[in-house]
């Protein structure tokens, strides 16, 4: 069992394999950003804002309070990983087209939560969208547009269903 000061972590991030050697207390967010995966953002660092949201083995989690060791053997998907062959995922396109991003710093976390919601529930009502985004904090006070974006993305995905990367 490895118990030295270097923690080996093998994982797949956005379809690419990584083999990291990390300090044992490294968070998944720190590991991702050190690997130039810059979609997830550090804002609060305490799991309160969801700007660091990623999909870890099919579940959306906060990478800031997830130990990188938890990703060993896992598949990680981040907001930029939703791009397919240079084409925006319907969630990304809806966020861009409805003006759901202002400064954009929290947006990858919103996109990840929206993506996770639509995997579970392809036809959410507004209350379900608001509940799903309940942990995502935007300091530009832009909550109405993201809710509209998720509902619009849901409409688009229902009319042209295409399983996204990392879909269960």
């Amino acid at each position: 069992m490895p118990d030295g000061s270097t923690l080996p972590v093998r994982c797949t991030v956005n379809g690419r394999e990584y083999h990291w050697r990390l300090a044992p207390g490294t968070t998944l967010l720190e590991a991702l950003r050190a690997a130039q995966v810059r979609g997830p953002k550090l804002v609060c660092g305490t799991g309160d804002c969801c700007a660091c949201g990623v999909i870890l083995d099919g579940r959306s989690v906060n990478a800031c309070c997830t130990l990188a060791g938890k990703a060993d053997g896992a598949t990680v998907l981040t907001a930029e990983g939703l791009l397919e062959a240079g084409r925006l995922h319907p969630v990304q396109a809806a966020f861009a087209e409805t003006g759901a991003a202002q400064c954009g710093f929290c947006t990858p976390g919103f996109v990840i939560r929206a993506y996770a919601l639509l995997q579970e529930d392809p036809d959410p009502d507004e209350a379900a969208v608001r509940a799903a985004l309940g942990g995502n904090i935007c300091r530009c006070t832009g909550y109405v547009k993201p809710v509209e974006a998720v509902l619009e993305a849901a409409r688009r995905m229902r009319s042209a269903p295409a399983p996204g990367p990392g879909a269960p």
């Binding site: 069992m1 490895p2 118990d3 030295g4 000061s5 923690l7 300090a23 044992p24 207390g25 490294t26 968070t27 720190e30 130990l67 060791g69 060993d72």
Partner: peptide, 16 residues
């Protein structure tokens, strides 16, 4: 980052 020196991943209850 947690300030720790080691990360153990026991594979069985006995190891844990």
């Amino acid at each position: 980052m947690l300030s720790v020196d080691a990360y153990h991943r026991p594979r069985s209850l006995e190891q844990a």
